[in-house]
Amino acid sequence: MKIVKIIAWIALVAFVVIQFFPVDYNQSETVPQTDFMLVNNVPATVEQSLQVSCYDCHSNNTDYPWYSKVQPSSWYLEHHIKEGKAELNFNEWGNLSDRRKNSKLRSIINQIEDGEMPLDSYTLIHRDAIFSEANKTAVIDYMNKLKDSLE
């Protein structure tokens, strides 16, 4: 039993130590002019859906949950947000060429249609981020319209 005790102590010490590791929080006070909502004429319901379901990981400003202050979940979130923004950052929409917008819209539409986005690991906690059927249709219709206007 001694060995179990030792392992438990090591785990506890490690847990305490990692709390002191710095985390790069994704927060910004300002919304740039290139933001998706400012560049496009987005209907209010669609805007609301995107803000709630997408912007935490696909913009420069995350609405952090309480557990983001506790390691190792902060690292987990940091990694997800970094990856999310690399794929798509709604705040920088206006900087994309029509070609890139077209490709991003295609991915947005497909991933929402297939239920790949928002991620299950995200909606597990953020229940409000799950698209209702009506919201899902509204978002996809809007994205399709936007895509057609580019082609």
């Binding site: 060429s97 070609r99 890139r100 490709s103």
Partner: peptide
């Protein structure tokens, strides 16, 4: 550069998708 950036993203996704998705990316 714009073309290459776009094409790279599609090629990378083709590298990790099922065939229906591969074909969608292949179109662009």
């Amino acid at each position: 550069n714009d073309i290459i950036e776009d094409a790279t993203e599609h090629a990378e996704h083709i590298g990790e998708s099922d065939i229906a998705h591969q074909r969608e990316h292949f179109k662009t």
